[in-house]
Simulated scan of single mutants.
Amino acid sequence: MISAILLVLITIFLPPVGVYLVSGCGADILINICLTLLGYIPGHIHAFYIEYVYYKRQEERQQGFVDNRQAPGVYSDNVQSGGRQQGYGTVN
C-alpha cells in the first residue's frame, strides 16, 4: 500500500520514472517519454493506466484469478503479469 502511494507521488511529478519503476526499460517507457514531451497530461494518463493494469493484475493473481488476455497498449510482460516473474519453472 505504501509503495503504491509512493509510486503515485513519483508519477505525479515525473510520469516516465513511475512507468520505469513498474515496467522497466522497454516500449512502455519510450511511449511515455514521447507522450510526456508532447504534453504533460498525456504522459500522466499513460503512466497511471500502466500502474492501474499492474496493480489490478497483481490483485487478481493474489485472489487466484488468472487473466491471460493482454491489456491493450501495454507492452511490458512485468505489467501484464502483475509483477510475477515469468520464465523457466513457472506454471501458468
Results as ranks from 00 to 15, higher is better:
Gly82Trp: 08
Tyr75His: 15
Gly18Ala: 08
Arg57Ile: 01
Val19Ile: 11
Pro42Val: 02
Ser81Phe: 03
His46Tyr: 15
Ser76Tyr: 11
Pro42Lys: 08
Leu14Asn: 07
Asn92Cys: 00
Gly39Trp: 08
Tyr40Cys: 02
His44Trp: 15
Val19Leu: 05
Leu38Gly: 14
Gln80His: 07
Asp28Met: 13
Ile45Trp: 10
Glu60Pro: 00
Leu14Ala: 12
Gln70Ser: 12
Ile33Arg: 02
Arg84Gly: 01
Leu37Glu: 06
Pro42Leu: 13
Ile41Met: 12
Met1Gly: 11
Val53Arg: 13
Ala71Glu: 12
Leu9Cys: 08
Glu59Gln: 15
Lys56Gln: 13
Glu51Thr: 09
Tyr55Arg: 12
Tyr20Phe: 15
Gly64Leu: 08
Gly43Leu: 11
Asn92Ser: 07
Leu9Ile: 07
Gly26Arg: 06
Ile45Met: 08
Ala27Pro: 00
Ala27Arg: 14
Gln70Met: 05
Val19Thr: 07
Leu9Asp: 03
Ala71His: 00
Ile2Met: 10
Tyr20Arg: 11
Tyr55Phe: 10
Ile29Met: 11
Arg61Trp: 08
Cys34Lys: 04
Ile10Met: 13
Gln70Ile: 06
Gln63Ser: 14
Val79Gly: 11
Gly82Cys: 03
Thr36Tyr: 07
Gly73Lys: 02
Ala47Pro: 06
Arg57Glu: 07
Tyr40Lys: 05
Leu9Val: 05
Asn78Gln: 04
Ser23Arg: 03
Arg61His: 10
Val79Tyr: 04
Gly89Ile: 02
Leu21Asp: 01
Asn68Cys: 03
Val8Asp: 11
Gly39Cys: 08
Gly39Leu: 10
Tyr55Ile: 01
Ile5Arg: 14
Gly39Arg: 09
Leu6Gly: 02
Ile2Asn: 08
Val79Glu: 02
Asn32Ala: 09
Gly83His: 05
Cys34Arg: 04
Gln58Tyr: 07
Ile33Pro: 00
Gly64Asp: 08
Val22Ile: 09
Gly39Gln: 10
Gly73Thr: 01
Gly64Arg: 06
Gly26Ala: 10
Ile29Glu: 00
Ser3Leu: 10
Leu35Arg: 09
Gln63His: 14
Pro42Trp: 14
Ile12Asn: 02
Gly89Ala: 10
Gln63Tyr: 07
Asn92Gly: 02
Ile41Glu: 06
Pro42Gly: 11
Gly82Ser: 07
Val53Lys: 14
Glu59Val: 09
Val8Ser: 12
Thr90Asp: 11
Arg61Cys: 00
Leu38Thr: 03
Ser81Thr: 15
Tyr52Met: 10
Leu21Val: 04
Leu21Ala: 04
Leu35Pro: 02
Leu38His: 02
Ser81Glu: 06
Ile10Ser: 12
Ile41Arg: 05
Ile33Tyr: 03
Tyr75Gly: 04
